[in-house]
Design a protein around this nucleic acid. Sequence first.
DNA 1: ATCGTCACGGTTGAG
DNA 2: GCCTCAACCGTGACG
Length: 283
Amino acid sequence: MEQSTFGEVNQLGGVFVNGRPLPNAIRLRIIELAQMGVRPCDISRQLRVSHGCVSKILARYNETGSILPGAIGGSKPRVTTPNVVKHIKIYKERDPGIFAWEIRDKLLADGVCDKYNVPSVSSISRILRNKIGSSSSPTSQSPTLDKTLIAPPPGPLYNSQFQVYPYSCPPPTMSSCPPSVSMQSMPSMPTNFHQQLSHPQMNMNNKPQMSSCVTPCMMRAWASSHSVNDILAFRAPGQPMTQSPPMTMQCDAMNNHHQLGQNYNTVNYYGMKQSVQPMYLQS
DNA sequence: ATCGTCACGGTTGAG
DNA sequence: GCCTCAACCGTGACG
């Protein structure tokens, strides 16, 4: 408990909290140093972060442009919302012999779902079996009619689970994003992000909608708007700044706001007193 | 000496 | 309020 609160010390003498991401300040510093041409092994020693971690963070940055850790915890957003179930039910009633993959196509065609949140064929089959099939009398279920349960796999469509939650995928169009999603609002990002991330679940009783600018992809591979350059300049244009705050202050702000409902929002990431500075500040 | 990878023990949060 | 589960984390070791 105490150990976890105050962190552990790794082989290099750096402090870390097992299971928790490094502070954004250190993550940012890793990227900075790498961009300055410092070798990963030197970054590892300088920041007292394991080289595996440095390697991982750099690799992620190269791949996604994001320095932020992925979304920890939680469940995948539900795709089988009441609205989707309702539509499946309608399709099934209209055509009792409809295949699950046909239902899937119709959900897409009718705009009930998009390619990111359309249920898989197996999910549709399960819905038909559990939620719709159970509502009718057991004897009324004719195996010959219920071809949804015996439909052959329609090829690539069966990959839908991976289409829904790819680790990396083409970035969503940001054109329709409200400015609140931009880095200019980084200090308040968690609120916005959690609203964005929970959007599908929060609208379960309404038409399921995935934000046009925050897709499931972004839940895994964070938006590229968290790039170093953006973070370095996340101050709103025109916002008066008497003196540019030190990088670490900006990052502390990000740390303190990074994830909602966590215990280190008033003290720093490790629950250390604010006087305790990250390693790299000492040298 | 360096770096990519992975098992491990841990945390987190939606359902 | 507790539990489960699947996501994530950084470390440390290996090759």
